[in-house]
Lab assay of single mutants.
Amino acid sequence: VIAMPSVRKYAREKGVDIRLVQGTGKNGRVLKEDIDAFLAGGA
């Protein structure tokens, strides 16, 4: 999974398994917005 360390930390704090999140950034990078969208109700 491609993600910046700050995004990985954010996901950990929110209790999200970053491997389950679909990245929308360049080359499938997971963004902070992707974590929020995942929490809001889905992949």
Rank of each mutant, 00 (worst) to 15 (best):
M4I: 11
R8E: 12
V16Y: 01
K32H: 10
D36A: 04
R8H: 13
D36K: 04
E13H: 09
A43H: 14
R8N: 06
D34G: 00
L39M: 09
G25H: 03
K32A: 07
A40M: 14
G28F: 05
G23H: 04
V1E: 07
L39H: 05
K14P: 00
R29T: 10
S6I: 07
M4D: 15
L31V: 10
A40P: 05
R8Y: 10
K32P: 05
Q22V: 15
Y10D: 06
P5D: 13
G15R: 07
T24I: 03
Y10I: 08
G25Q: 03
E33I: 11
E33D: 11
Y10R: 06
G28R: 07
K14E: 05
A43D: 13
L39C: 07
F38D: 02
G42P: 13
M4N: 15
G28S: 06
I18Q: 01
E13K: 12
G25E: 02
V30G: 00
A11L: 02
A43R: 14
F38S: 04
P5T: 09
F38Q: 04
A43N: 14
M4H: 15
L31T: 13
A40S: 13
D34C: 01
M4V: 12
A37H: 12
Y10F: 04
V7L: 05
V21E: 00
K32M: 13
I2H: 07
I35H: 00
G15L: 06
Y10T: 06
D34T: 01
R29A: 14
K9P: 01
D34E: 00
K9F: 08
G28N: 08
E13D: 14
I2A: 08
I35K: 00
E33L: 08
R12W: 15
V30D: 00
A3F: 02
A43Q: 14
D34P: 00
G25N: 02
N27R: 10
G23R: 03
K32Q: 08
R8Q: 12
D34I: 00
D36Y: 03
K9Q: 14
R12D: 15
K9R: 13
D36L: 05
V21C: 08
G28Q: 06
L39R: 06
I35D: 00
V30E: 00
G25L: 02
I35A: 00
G15P: 00
A37W: 10
I2Q: 09
I2L: 06
E13S: 12
L20H: 10
G25Y: 01
S6H: 12
E33H: 12
L39E: 05
G15Y: 05
V30P: 02
K9W: 09
T24P: 01
L31F: 07
K26L: 13
G15D: 06
P5M: 08
T24V: 02
A11P: 04
G23S: 04
I2V: 12
I2M: 04
V21N: 00
R29F: 08
K14W: 07
Y10V: 07
V7A: 06
G23M: 02
F38L: 07
G41I: 13
R19Q: 10
R19P: 03
M4R: 15
D36I: 06
L39K: 05
I2R: 10
N27A: 09
I18A: 02
K14S: 08
V21Y: 00
D17A: 05
M4K: 15
L31E: 11
A43G: 15
I35P: 00
K32E: 06
E13A: 12
A11H: 01
V21D: 00
S6T: 08
L39P: 04
S6D: 15
A37D: 11
V1R: 10
A11G: 03
G25V: 03
R12V: 15
R29S: 13
R12T: 15
V21F: 02
Y10H: 10
T24K: 05
D36H: 04
V1Y: 06
V1I: 12
L31Y: 07
I35W: 00
K14Q: 12
K32C: 11
K9T: 08
A40E: 13
A37K: 13
I2F: 03
R29H: 09
T24R: 06
R12S: 14
V21R: 00
D34L: 01
G28A: 06
R29D: 08
L20G: 06
V16T: 03
I35N: 00
V21Q: 01
K26Y: 10
T24F: 03
M4G: 15
G41Y: 12
K9C: 12
G15H: 08
A11N: 00
I18N: 00
R19W: 08
G15Q: 07
L39Q: 06
